[in-house]
Design a binder for these strands. Sequence first.
RNA 1: GUGGCUGUAGCUCAGUUGGUUAGAGCAUCGGUUUGUGGUACCGAGGGUCGCGGGUUCGAGUCCCGUCAGCCACCCCA
Length: 446
Amino acid sequence: MIEPRTLKGFRDHLPAQALARERVLDIARRVYRSYGFAPIDTPALEYLEILTGKGSEETDKQLYRFQDHGGRDVGMRFDLTVPFARFAAQHLHDLGLPFKRYHMATVWRGENTQRGRYREFMQCDFDTIGTTSPVADLEMLLVVHDLLAAIGVERFTIRVNDRRVLAGILARLGLAERATSVLRSLDKLGKATPEAVAAELAGQGVAADAGAALLEMAGLSGPADDVLMRLESLVGGVEAGQCGVKALRGIVAGARDAGVAEGRIVIDPSIARGLDYYTGIVLESFLDDLPALGSICSGGRYDDLAGLYTKQPLPGVGASLGIDRLLAGLEELGRAATVETPAEVFLVYFDEAHLGDYLRIAAALRAGGMAVEFFPEPKRMGQQLKLASKRGFPAALVIGSDEFAAGTAQLKNLAAQQSQTIDWHGDLRVLVDAVHSCLESMREGR
RNA sequence: GUGGCUGUAGCUCAGUUGGUUAGAGCAUCGGUUUGUGGUACCGAGGGUCGCGGGUUCGAGUCCCGUCAGCCACCCCA
């Protein structure tokens, strides 16, 4: 016997999880499309040279790599951005600019696992390339907002910043050359205490007053307009910094115009993002009830997506939803769906003599747009109903010889434990309409 | 990748200072006379105690390794 098992960080998905996952994927697809992003796909495997060097040394270490049967050095994609860069450079002529795409696919990273951190997980990216317009920046924010709202996460916050603000402040403090390490330290503020971060900064040789200024900046919170005003003075006369503040003002105003509720979006000067290719707006989003889970949707603007693969400059802006982390969070919060069936109607196989009728009824209901599971064996009705109830079917349809004789049917609301009689007189259309409207009202009732 | 904690039936756990056939609840399956489901009663199946090695007369119980999960660092979705 071979022990059935899965690799560290790799997981199976049972129906309840898989259904929850597909639901989120459907929503993401719908939201992305509603802004005009078009789907693309790329191979899981790329030439190693495409994947290495890009990103940081860290990602190189995490890369799954091997030689294929033809002796080629290949690697599995660890995100969707690098393959997109290759894709854009390769197909630029066919795409036209600006180009908006979404890409929902599995990626692999050989890093250590934790809750919400796996070695195989899915990302749902969307990007706009070939434009530097602030409208594209704003649109990214709106997509993230719509996405989280549509998923039904009630309490979430999108934290926004602009790299140029950070750059401006660092320049003013004379720390521009140490930007990466300083920002990395500041980025820890969510988890570590300000004192700890101050100590770390001091360890990097940052002067005490400069460190204090950085912490003051990173600690700013409150209404967006207030924070922006404070940032403006902190940035002083540095041009990049002023640009950043101005851009954030535009974002805040645009979000208001688009009808985003106050408080959903917060200006957070401590958001830096580890990836150093971001150059403008950056954002991260968190579940308010589970901030320790980390960002579930992050992104930002970058100057050049595909500089490694083409001379054509491709500025862009985009973000990525970490669906597996999100689902892990929802599960922990007890907000994960427990339904184990995609079907709405469970048709009880009651009377073997009426098999033909059941098949006709099931077909008619399906043609009417309803998902129907017909039980394959004429087992005891109690067992069938129990199973249907456990699987989470909203409704069960019971039609035995008595009902056939009377031209009726019993439709059970399995959750409410209620039953109602449908008079359909052998007319399938009447039955289909009745079941349909019953399901409608049951959905409203929830 | 580094460090720490954990690992007993599908799930949550109990298992005396190492000692004969490893238990419970829930879940699963079957039944309570053959047309009605989350309740009740009866019964059944299911565990090489993560895996491998060592110490011992004897290990679920001690030691080492390994695998997996969780936590921190790191990085990030």
